[in-house]
């Protein structure tokens, strides 16, 4: 994926000097292994800081709502789907945007590589095609990129951007025959008490930093329900009931809008698999309403519309 770096720089330079856009949103190289920093380019002399590799998992669509300038943005498949959601929800106008589509082979999961390093600290990481070479004090390891994909990337079925103004490379082959919901079915098969315990344990490490919420492009409400105080729906302590209320409602708020970009899970400092909440909703939305978020620019999100014959087996 490194080859995109040059393409992004070239496009940014061109768009800025031709005054097609005012700013470019991309990534610059991170200061620690497996991390890159979202970066706003305002002038041509900053263009060479733009960078791309397999650690660009943060969703750049998160930086678009309420922007007033003409902006170019680098978008992977999932980012582009979130741009579609933004367009549907009037968060930004299409003619403000210049989308640099990045056909994507998936981003790598920092946490799993760290786990396999078993406490050894990576000091340098270099990506080379299908391999990631990691080194630290007295060790060098090579990780296979494909094996260490983020769990959402491994089951991704929209690797190519769904909207774009230009592509940074040839479209990649979409993954076929992917089973997106084995984990959801595993949880569904549990008894209700097991499910309760499962989710209690899942969220136990939560420190209520709201990184999952804030890394999500869909969370742009002027006042989040968490911050409402009259009435206060969610207690602010780390009490398990309150933490579960937060995670439940956060997931529910993104129902039918979530593109499974994995930003929430990537951002979590304590490694909670928060997608366990959102994936069930994604499955339900697909089964009940045949809707996939951010794929079609002319179809309203499922909770923003209805059909007279919607299924209602649960209603007396």
């Amino acid at each position: 994926m490194r080859e995109y770096t040059e393409r992004i720089r070239e496009a940014a330079k061109r768009l800025l000097s031709e005054q097609r856009v005012d700013t470019v949103i991309g990534f610059r190289r991170g200061t620690v292994p497996f991390m890159n920093e979202p970066f706003l380019v305002k002038s041509v002399d900053q263009v060479d800081q733009l960078y791309w590799d397999s650690n660009c998992g943060i969703n750049l669509a998160n930086y678009l709502p309420k922007r007033t300038d003409r902006v170019a943005v680098v978008a992977k498949g999932c980012d582009s789907r979130n741009i579609v959601v933004h367009l549907l929800e009037n968060q930004i106008k299409r003619d403000q945007l210049y989308i640099l589509g990045a056909p994507c082979r998936g981003m790598v999961d920092k946490r799993r590589m760290m786990a396999d390093l078993k406490g050894k600290e990576p000091l340098h990481a270099e990506e080379n095609g299908k391999e990631i070479k990691v080194s630290g004090r007295g060790f060098q390891v090579t990780f296979d990129r494909q094996t260490y994909l983020q769990s959402n990337c491994a089951i991704c079925t929209h690797r190519n951007p769904v909207v774009y103004d230009e592509l940074l490379g040839d479209p990649v082959e979409e993954q076929q025959g992917v089973d997106r919901y084995p984990d959801v079915r595993r949880i569904e098969a549990m008894s209700v008490d097991e499910r309760w315990r499962y989710f209690q344990e899942l969220i136990a490490p939560c420190i209520r930093c709201y990184a999952c919420r804030n890394a999500c492009p869909l969370c742009y409400c002027p006042t989040c329900f968490v911050d409402e105080s009259r009435p206060q729906w969610v207690g602010k302590t780390i009490d398990p009931t309150d933490t579960l209320t937060f995670h439940f409602l956060r997931a529910y708020h993104v129902a039918g809008r979530c593109t499974d970009c994995g930003s929430c899970e990537r951002a979590c400092p304590v490694g909670i698999e928060v997608r366990k909440f959102t994936k069930k909703l994604e499955k339900e939305v697909k089964e009940l309403y045949g809707y996939e978020a951010g794929v079609t620019p002319d179809q309203r999100p499922p909770l923003d519309t209805f059909k007279p014959g919607d299924p209602e087996p649960f209603i007396k």
């Binding site: 979202p38 919420r213 400092p269």
Partner: peptide, 16 residues
């Protein structure tokens, strides 16, 4: 302006 751009205003840094 440049420092703040990437920030998502979560509480990770302050809580850790």
């Amino acid at each position: 302006d440049e420092v703040q751009f990437a920030c998502i205003n979560c509480g990770t840094c302050t809580f850790l």
